[in-house]
Nucleic acid binder design. Structure first.
Lengths: 341, 341
DNA sequence: TTTGTTTATGGACACGTGACCAGTATTTTT
DNA sequence: AAAAATACTGGTCACGTGTCCATAAACAAA
């Protein structure tokens, strides 16, 4: 690979002068600038970003860790963040923790070895890595959390207003007459502490509804798990009349289980889900969802990390985005039989 | 950030000795090794990968450019390649060219500036960047193409056996009695030269079927384009009796257009698609698809790039994977009315 | 002219590491 | 006992760049 010395030699100038053709062209005599630029073009010279970052102390690389790329929410997140950051001159390292804290620790170390300037993190559940991230932050790595907060997280974040969204959904189901509502989500305070599941019992109480303990199952947010749990729930003596899935992939598993059991939406059971995924309006009936403003959130996270990098020591910025309830036909009043029970 | 000199100072040894605790621990006296290791742990030292790569000339970073992360095929590709390469100690830079050659050129330059060791490329259509990639290759960047070949590509690749898959699909549709078959794909030889669309006319001829020129529309592989084109095709005086979508996202757009028109699958029209996406078996009827072995292809690509990096100057390795036709119910014999016409 | 100022260019050094060579103490061989 | 081999440790340099300082020529101000 050509370096700036090769360029300088070909242009008949010193390396310092050659470098100025890129970093401070206004300092050069027009004729010199032209000669150097031609040499750069002829050699297809591209500056070595690693050396630049090493010397200057300013990395132009940002690390992004998501929960699971196969979840379309995260795919969009990557796409939009990647595009936004590239426009600002940053390069993106991507990792997928598969919701596993141990994967995540390895990935954080890899990022650390590459001396990223900033970290956008959708942490795997739990707080085992909180200290590690705090140390990165202390070493001048900017940190922004997205979609999920590590417990006691002191960092900036971009989040959905999860509690309000849960409220929106539950009030909707309640207004239809549902009493036996099951939330498909994580149910373990320390291992899987997501805000949506956490808000569920309290919001139910506000509506004067009881939460059946039989409905609480600790699961990882995969379609396969939701499929399994849905079968279990529907086998209970008092099965739920409405399912509320906290992610789109959970809804997908639930949908498949319900159809397999021959249950018709919305007569036999109601299904409500987070995430406005394409399939939700392709099935019949289309699924009622709480849509997240993924693009806006992604852009906000990207712009936030840039601010954190370029003006350090700013107070943590914590932003919440609202979700939107879209009614399509997968929810209705529970069957009379169920209402009586 | 702590560096090896800090570690050395704390352990009371020279930097050279301290570094050996990581790179050549067998050379150190047990007591020394222990002291250095403790210092490393206390400082949470992680070697600077940029400096290491700069000095050694061996980068541990690999660049991956995909067509569109929102296409689940590419999401899986990223996930599996990322996991496989991490296990081998490589870090992944990800970019999404959005099927646009100009984006791609910028991304290639960014990769070049980061001195990636290898490039896994799903090129945007066309060959404008072929020369640039060839120059990277000449400068010792390993190159593997996936899913798509740049025209006259001399590189290693991992591909689906597209022609055979098209044959599989068309023979299936032919066996059901279809004559008016439209392929949703790109139709421009130089701008959008994908193998699937390209193989279509010849395979139709082999089956003794005519290709209606009215069915040939140049499109980008997005769901929105397929939606639009499907409406156009169905408005023709002689609409197709079967649609063959060359990607899952195209099928998704087509499906929505067909449903909007009140057409029932498979009675009114047959739909066949590449890519076994989750939604294809959630809709009713489930969609017949040609499934790609995404995981196997991703692992193959990841392992191939590592081989190319670690043993340079090897001949190009070009691998084809077979697809599988899965019949589910979205294809049937064309209606009598249509057969007669 | 003299002095100061601007314009255009070049040189020295350090970032953190890996490669290589050099040294000293200790052990083994003859 | 001397020589040789081994075990362990330290020092020097370069990778390609950005930062800072130095120099020479041209020009402006006195």
């Amino acid at each position: 690979m050509a370096n700036i010395t090769d360029v300088a030699r070909r242009a008949g100038v010193s390396p310092t002068t050659a470098k100025r053709a890129i970093n401070n062209p206004e300092l050069l005599a027009p004729a010199t600038l032209k000669r150097v630029k031609r040499a750069i073009a002829q050699l297809a010279y591209e500056p070595d970003q690693r050396a630049a970052a090493l010397r200057s102390g300013h990395s132009k690389t940002i690390g992004l860790i998501v929960g699971n790329i196969d979840e379309p929410f995260f795919a969009s997140l990557i796409r939009v963040i990647s595009r936004t950051l590239r426009a600002q001159g940053y390069t993106l390292l991507v990792a997928d923790n598969e919701y596993d804290t141990r994967n995540e620790l390895e990935q954080l170390k890899t990022f650390q070895r590459n001396r990223i300037a900033g970290l956008i993190l959708r942490s795997g559940y739990g707080k085992p890595n909180l200290k590690y991230v705090q140390r990165m932050k202390a070493n001048d790595t900017a940190v922004v959390e997205v979609d999920f907060l590590m417990p006691e997280s002191p960092f900036s974040h971009v989040m959905l207003d999860n509690t309000r969204c849960m409220k929106l959904g539950l009030e909707y189901l309640h207004s239809l007459g549902h009493k036996r509502i099951a939330t498909l989500g994580s149910y373990h305070e320390t291992i899987l502490p997501d805000e949506r599941t956490k808000a569920f019992p309290e919001l139910m109480a506000d509506l004067g509804l009881a939460v059946s303990e039989a409905y609480e199952r600790i699961i990882h947010p995969t379609s396969a798990e939701a499929y399994r749990i849905t079968h279990e729930l529907m086998n209970l003596p008092e099965p739920p009349t409405a399912l509320f899935a906290t992610t789109g992939n959970l809804a997908s598993g639930a949908f498949q289980a319900l159809r397999e059991r021959g249950l018709e939406l919305p007569q036999d059971i109601s299904l409500l889900s987070f995430d406005n995924y394409p399939w939700t309006h392709m099935v019949a009936p289309a699924i009622d969802v709480i849509a997240q403003p993924v693009e806006d959130m992604s852009i906000a996270a990207a712009e936030m990390i840039v601010r954190e990098i370029e003006t350090p020591d700013r107070p943590a910025e914590q932003v919440r985005f609202p979700g939107t309830l879209i009614k399509r036909g997968s929810c209705a009043a529970p069957q009379a039989m169920n209402v009586i029970v």
